[in-house]
């Protein structure tokens, strides 16, 4: 029943909409609902990256902190965005911190569980690769633009 609800949510998500029912039910087995209060930290930098979050309601700020000044928000994420991809990449640790800027409802998927299922079922692994990579690529392209500091005035 619970699992069936997650399948429903996943099948409506832009990244996972193309997955077949069997795959979605495999993934749903790793999923749970979470609620984060406005202002609370979803994860800290350095935390084990053990979950992937699909945002259903609310906004998240991805921040990078420095010792001498306030953290800088490098990206905000919004409904239907995916938060957290370090679970895919060793050493599976978060390289930034995520803060809920509003009350937040997410579906989170257990990263270790997903990795195990992918190891057991390479076809699932390839599906994940095909669908998550374009999403990641889009985010990387956006970050590149950010690095260009487009609105800066090079002459001053």
């Amino acid at each position: 029943m619970q699992t069936h609800g997650f399948e429903e949510i996943l099948s409506r998500h832009p990244v996972f909409a193309g997955f077949d029912g069997d795959t979605l039910s495999l993934m749903a087995g790793c999923a749970r609902n979470e609620h984060v209060q406005a202002g609370a930290i979803v994860y800290f930098e350095g935390d084990p990256a053990d979950r992937m979050y699909l945002i259903r309601h609310g906004d998240v700020a991805v921040e990078i902190g420095t010792p001498e000044r306030n953290p800088i928000i490098v990206e905000t994420l919004h409904p239907d965005d995916i938060l957290g991809w370090s679970w895919m990449v060793p050493p599976y640790r978060h390289m930034s911190q995520a803060r809920a800027t509003t009350d937040l409802r997410v579906v989170s998927l257990d990263g270790a569980c997903l990795r195990r299922k992918c190891d057991d079922n390479p076809a699932l692994g390839y599906m994940m690769f095909k669908h998550l990579l374009p999403h990641m690529a889009q985010r990387v392209r956006a970050l590149r633009l950010q690095v260009l500091d487009l609105y800066g005035t090079a002459s001053s």
Partner: peptide
Amino acid sequence: VTVDHAAPGWTGRVGVVTTVIDR
């Protein structure tokens, strides 16, 4: 409205303007 960088306290969007177009 979106900005490239913000300090905490900014409740708006952070991200380049092009990412907002699809949405």
